[in-house]
Structure formats: C-alpha cells, structure tokens
Nucleic acid binder design. Structure first.
Lengths: 343, 343
DNA sequence: ATTAGCACTCGACTTAAATGAGTGCTAACG
DNA sequence: CGTTAGCACTCATTTAAGTCGAGTGCTAAT
C-alpha cells in the first residue's frame, strides 16, 4: 500500500487538527474539511489504511485517531521542506548592543518561550579550541595578586592569589613577561609538566606563584567546558494537559532545573556536523524523561569557533511550523550577533 | 477565653498530626494520644473552643480540623523558642575549599533541597558599600584593551574596549596611573561629572577610552545590584498534593524560574536588621503567588559587609523543626566560610 | 468537668445507567 | 470500482443515585 495524494492530505488534516485541539480526531471532523469532499465513511476507510501504515493510532476502540511518532515525523519532514524557502524575521530586535552575553542569552531563551508558549533553552557558546590568549598579573593590594586569564574566544577569568609578602613593580613586570612569552597561544595540552618546571625554575623564589597561576589557567579552560545553560518558560508545560500529570511534570521541571540532563541534547546536536535544525519526536529524544515531548534544536555560531545551542521543548503536538520559524530567527540573530558585539 | 495548658497541648497535637498526614485531623485521633487521657467528646469541646479562638479551621462541616495560619504561627513561635538552645551540625562538610563561589552557593541550595524535600533558594552575597578598589588596563592585542575592575568585596569585572589604533606601553602606564590615583576608593556616587570631565581633559586624545572605562565601572557596580539567585528542588513541590494542582504549580515553578519574584523576599529579609531566622506562613508571605506556602529565610554574612540570603519554601504543613535546623546549619556554614575561603 | 450516645452532615467513593463520539462492516448506488 | 448511507457495536466520559464513614454538635447521664 502506498501513501497517495489523498491519503497524504487526510493525514495532514488529521495531524493539523490534533495539533490544535489535543483531542483524538474522528472521521466526521475530517469529512467536513472543505477541500476534499468525501463522506465520513470514505475517510474511515482511508484512516484504517493510514493506521495500518503506522501513521496514526487509535487510543482505544471507539476513539478517533491521533498521530503516531511516525506520523509526526512525516508531517515535520514535509514542513521542513516547505520552510527551506523562507526565513522570516521576528519583528523586534533581540536586544540592545550593550547587554552582556549572559543577559543576552537569557533574553533569547525568554523571547522564544514567550513567543511559542513552550519551554526553551539556550546554551552559552563554547569554544572548541581552548588556547590561552593573554595573561596578566597585577598587584591588588599588599597581600593579593590578581591574575586575569583570557582564552580564545574572549572568555575571561579572574583569580585572586594570596601572597605572603608584597612584590615590587619590577618583579611583577618580570613575571608578566615570563608568563606571556612562554604561554601565549598554547592550548592546555601543550602546557605540560616540563614547561611548568622550566618556568618555575626561571621564576626562582616566585615559583609558587607561577604554579598558582597555571592552576588557574587550567581551571579556567576546564571550567569553560561545563557550560552554562539558560532556560525559560518551564512552566509552560502546564498549558498542555498531556504533560502536566504529576510525575511527568515533576520530571520535566527537574530536568530544567538541574540542567545536567539537558547536556545530552547538546552532545547530540553538536556531533551532527551540519548546521541544521533537528527535530526529535517522542521516543527519538535522547533524554528519557522527555519521551512524551518533542524537541527542536539548532546550533548557532558565535565566531572564533564558538558554538552554542538553542532548543525548544514542548508536547508532541507542538506547533512545529511556528517553532521552527522561531528557532530559525533566533539562530540567525545569534549567528550575526558577534560581528556587532564583541564582549 | 484563654489558651490554657490543655488547649495548648491539644492544639500542638492537632498541628503535629496534620503536618505528618496532610489530612484534617479529627477528635478521635487526638483522644488516642497517650499523654492526655481524654475522650473524643472532650476533645471536640476543646476543638470548638480552639476554632472559636481562630487557631484551627474546619474545611467543611463534617471534617476534622486543620491549622489556620494563626495556628501555624503559634506552633512556630513555640518551636523557635525551643530551638534557641541547640544548634545542631549537619554531618557532612558543605564542600571542599577550592570550589568557586557560585558552585558553592548552588551546592548549598541543593544540599538544603535534598535534606528537606522542599524548594530552596540561595542568593549570592551582595556588598552594601560599592566602592572601587582597583582598576587595571592592559593591552590585549593591537585593537583591544582589557579593563579589569575590582570593587569592594572582590567582585571583579572585565570589559574589552575596542580602540582604533594600538597604544604604546607608556600611554597604557599613564592611563593606569591616572585612573587609579583618581578613582580608587570612590563610590559610584562620588564619581561625578566634574571628576569625569577633569579626567578626560588630562587624558587628552585618550578621553574616549577613559569614558568607556568609567561607563564600565558604573555598569559593574550597578550590575552587582541585580543579584544572582540559585534555586534547587523546585520539583519537590509535586510531593505535596496541596501545591501541585496545575495553577499553583505553574505559578510556583514560574517564580522559581524567573527569580525576579524572589527578590521581594530578599528585600524583606534584609530590611530586618536583626540576624535572625524569619518564618512567613501563608498570607504573611510577601510574595502573592506563595500564599499557600510557608517560607523560612535567614541572612548570612560573608565578611566585608557582604550579605546574602538563604530560604526554604514548602507547604504550610512543612516540617518547621527540620527546616529551621537546616537553615541554621547552612547559615552558620556560610557565615564561617569567608574566613577560610577568599575568592 | 467529663463522657457516652445519637442524630446529623457532607465529602469521598462505588455503582449503574445514559450519552455520544467514533468505528467497522455491509449493501446499495452511480 | 470507488463512494456512500446505514446500522450495530464499542467504550471513554458524564451523570445520578446510593452507600460509607469520618467527624461533628448537642444532650443527658455520670
């Protein structure tokens, strides 16, 4: 049996209707659709076929049909094709230029949540190549030195180092030159024990300071790895009865609060080399607790090899059309952002 | 009518029982309490009195009684008195020394959530006096200058400033000296327009850089004001049926995600000059959406006039005893923390 | 002052029946 | 042959009625 023209139309009508109402849709409802003038009986026959083909499901004997994961998949694929043509623009500017990165991302998450009425997430961009760009020690007061560490992609980290006795300007200068000449442009792998020992030797009595600085460098680069995730609109799930029974809601909220779980999504999105939008439907989700949801994700690029992820999570009957549109808009905004705003 | 010895005992028995079960408690249940040998009929009479006094409520004619807000208040006040004596210690160390502040606070929130099974929050410590402590410009690369700003309490902020042409070392040194000699130790109010104009004049052609730096300083100090809040265990609310109906749960989750709302709590806790634990019961809460909850909060001090807040939010029938204990423990941990760990 | 007893209330639960949306199948129709 | 009208059947949901029982208030006896 094949999916002919008419079956396709009926299938899409069923899904569309279900997306709107969240209720199983029956043959009579479809037969009333204007553009195909068929009686409910005919529709019933077709529906039986569609069920056999696995696109729709009957929750129980005397109920209408709802889309199966396969049905959603079909619908989404068709829609994505449609979408290739247009990239609409969200009306309002994402934000003013002077805002800081984290505010901006938080804002982006919120914007998506408000626009779609689903739960959303945005991860901070993460650099793929972690090399030290710049390093600076300065005297803060008699017993504290401030180390500023800048790694590729302008991730900046400060560490305060406590010292027993005050260092004079000349020593500070020497240490700065020593560190910068030897470490700049190196990745964390390249800063090995041999190099460290050599540096410490050259620094003489200030060896311990060098060690602390290098520790801080290592930590900064490492820390950059357990990335930040901004979420918004988690409470939107209560708008969809199929997600708001106690157990499910609790699990979902937990995932959003812990964020740990969301990282699985990132890995999955990142390994996919292509720069495209991904849609997970139900069981396709890499996150177990979200198998009653659909998830739409995309990568964005922040220049300098920095990449982050945005995602929207909602019920399987989400408005895929709108969601994909929103994701596209936000993605393109973020993609072009770093040119204007370098933080 | 007065609250005599026996009434007090009965009231406490009612509340205690209700805290455990979450169900209205009837006269027979109380009469079976060992230490006061009274028949259910007697209890009923007393209960009628207690209701008239406003300590307990009958949800409907033929149901048992549940505590009113006033009843809870009575119970909590009695308990707090009890608690003055002992400060128990949570068995495990809060965390290892080397963790960073935000990790630490996140950890604290989580620890409390796991311990109590309620939702929790911890705010980052905020300095009351915002004066500039230290300021440093350094050349990052040909077209970028890095400004590091340290304000009292060791809040550190970095800003990258883009410059048209590279500055030589001497100029950088001059600017650094200029800025530090004039600005160190000043609060944001003291850095007025007159001072800024004078500085710009002295800087000559580098006036625009000065301006950017000062903007960044102002922003840093301001930013410190919209403080960060860490939350944990929001999904715990699903463990209490009285909070998990859709509307309420949605509101609560929203408050926890937005965090904006939680700031009301902070203001309220802070204005209270005393360093004590506060308990809000039901309608007493400064946050409207939490009027079905109880909230327990405390301030902690992080040295240097830095203060933050910790709080636990749960159903009105929360285990006040345990909650107050936990809060006390965490508070004392945080209070003593800054001596060991200066970040 | 305390208690036993009893009538009464009312939410929660159980059961049964009615409802109605929706199906599958068959036979008739163009 | 595809389409449709008609009909018997299914089954979740709604509605109504009935039962249960925990709990109360009141009264009269101890």
């Amino acid at each position: 049996m094949e999916l002919d023209e008419r079956k396709t139309k009926i299938l899409q009508a069923i899904i569309k209707n279900y997306l709107e109402t969240g209720e199983p849709v029956g043959s009579r409802t479809i037969s009333k659709y204007t553009d195909l003038n068929l009686s409910s009986a005919t529709i019933r026959n077709e529906m039986a076929d569609l069920e056999e083909l696995g696109f729709i499901i009957q929750p129980h004997t005397s109920a209408g049909r709802i889309p199966s994961d396969k049905g959603y998949r079909f619908y989404v694929d068709a829609m994505m094709l449609e979408h290739e043509k247009e990239v609409e623009q969200l009306k309002d500017v994402l934000l003013e230029k002077e805002e800081k990165l984290d505010h901006m991302l938080k804002q982006a998450a919120k914007l998506m949540a408000v626009n779609t009425n689903y739960a959303t997430m945005v991860t901070a961009p993460r650099s793929s190549r972690n090399v030290l760009k710049f390093l600076q020690l300065s005297r803060m007061d008699a017993s504290h030195i401030l180390a500023v560490i800048v790694i590729e992609g302008n991730v900046i980290k400060n560490t305060v180092i406590e010292v027993a006795e005050s260092l004079n300007d000349e020593t500070m200068l020497k240490l700065n030159i020593l560190l910068n000449t030897h470490l700049n442009g190196l990745s964390v792998e390249e800063i090995n024990l041999g190099l460290i020992t050599a540096l410490k030797q050259q620094a003489g009595m200030y060896g311990p300071i060098i060690e602390e600085v290098i520790d801080a460098v290592a930590e900064t680069i490492k820390e950059d790895e357990d990335l930040e995730i901004y979420t918004s609109g988690a409470n939107n799930i209560f708008k969809y009865p199929e997600l708001s029974d106690n157990q499910k809601a609790s699990d979902l909220i937990n995932a959003f609060e812990e964020k740990q779980l969301l990282t699985q999504l990132i890995d999955d999105t990142n390994t996919e080399g292509k720069n495209e939008i991904k849609v997970y439907i139900g069981e396709e989700s890499p996150i177990q607790t979200m198998k009653d949801c659909s998830i739409v994700t995309a990568n964005y690029e922040f220049g300098d090899g920095m990449r982050g992820m945005i995602g929207i999570i909602g019920p399987k009957r989400m408005d895929y059309d709108k969601v994909v549109g929103t994701i596209k808009t936000i993605k393109s905004q973020l993609d072009t952002m770093y040119k204007k705003d370098e933080d």
